[in-house]
Nucleic acid binder design. Structure first.
Lengths: 222, 222
DNA sequence: CGCGAAATGAGCCGATCGGCTCATTTCAGG
DNA sequence: CCTGAAATGAGCCGATCGGCTCATTTCGCG
């Protein structure tokens, strides 16, 4: 449980190697790699990673389709998309395919690691905002497991699911800006959630909030 | 180990009661109380708390003498002084008597709790600055145990003892200002230590530093 | 006796954070 | 149907933080 296992899906070997080094220096273990989107599900089934890092632009069926396939064959395996595209259409497609996170390739290593930890712990999930039907559809397909996560301990402190997600990212050192990018919300909204968390936990700042949350068993570091 | 046991020494019953409530709501356990400075050592020996909260103005021999006595009878039991006096002479006297921390009574509950946790874990210790002989004298008497703390893991990251102390306080949500007051240094110096810590741990901010430190086993939350 | 590391302290400045108020939308439950 | 909670978003402003450089003192080690 301490060493997160990850699977990298990207056709650029150089980037994959760099990613592997970065992740392993952060205490994560890369148990599988592939650059062929058609092999994704098969490799994942034998390697059984805790979390998958998925590129979008891939030879074969492509990252979106691979994510959907993975989501059907191995529901519960969180997929974090690492893409060069920031357009809403691509983001929406990825999220509807079952991805739990979407990061730009110009994000920092720390952000990636934080997102992966959060994804693996079940804190990062759900369709970002989407509108109406797409949202409820995505929620119905496979993201529902998030709703029954650890609301037990959280409810004792009156924390909502969203606030728990924020806490998980906080525990990885996320800035307000990083929170927004990881959860597809504006920095303002992230700040609002933080303010609610501070109030509920009786913390004066983010670091104290993390400390109290860890002691309360709401989140874990490591 | 999870529930810190404390002993409260203060002749104001009302304050003691309030303190007890505050500490217990923070997950600490008050295993002994007394308002008589002459009973301090005796009570501590039977109750065996993890850390002692000591008032200065006490009937009998007084808090300073009680601290010295405690320090001789039970070396290794950290004493945090909670005083109304901020004058350097009183602070110096308390530190030379063996106290590992000195807080004003107008500090926040969070600061007290943080200081107690740090003190109990051995992170808060040593004479603040003092000058020359007084410093080395205090260091020779009983604060030396800090030098052989957990430099093993810390040295792997090149962290100094002082930086470890900072980290412990950070893990309790301390602000730069709180760091300065807890360690008797200026905010500027605290910031300098932080900058060094960030560099050594590869963290971008204090919360990330805590996260990395916890994962590296340098500090513990809880 | 230097030399360097550690610790202390300062000034400056831009970035970030935290508190406050306010508004909108969605959605579940009475 | 209406109310309230949750989530989203915004503006404003002071406080804090983090990066940068610089200086001083102390101390251990060759």
């Amino acid at each position: 449980m301490s060493n997160l296992t990850t699977m990298l899906v990207d056709d650029h070997t150089l980037l994959r190697e760099a990613l592997r080094r970065a992740l392993e220096s952060e205490g994560m273990k890369v148990v599988a790699e592939t650059g062929d989107s058609d092999q994704v599900a098969q490799v994942a089934e034998s390697a059984r990673p805790d979390v998958v890092v998925m590129d979008i632009a891939l030879p074969g069926q492509g990252g979106i389709a691979a994510t959907r396939q993975l989501h059907e064959r191995l529901p519960g395996l969180p997929v974090v998309v690492l893409s060069m595209f920031a357009d809403q259409a691509t983001v929406d497609a990825a999220m509807q395919a079952g991805a739990v996170g979407y990061l730009m390739k110009d994000c920092t290593t720390g952000e990636l690691v934080g997102a992966l930890r959060s994804a693996a712990s079940g804190a990062l999930a759900g369709p970002p905002r989407g509108s109406g039907k797409a949202t409820s559809k995505a929620a119905a397909t496979g993201t529902a497991w998030l709703s029954q996560s650890r609301c037990s301990a959280a409810e004792a402190h009156g924390l909502t699911r969203r606030e728990l997600q924020i806490l998980h990212l906080l525990a990885n050192g996320a800035s307000n800006d990083a929170l927004g990018r990881a959860l597809f919300i504006s920095t303002k909204t992230a700040k609002n959630h933080l303010a609610h968390i501070y109030g509920k936990l009786g913390a004066a700042n983010r670091t104290e909030a993390v400390a109290k949350a860890v002691r309360a068993g709401l989140v874990a570091i490591g």
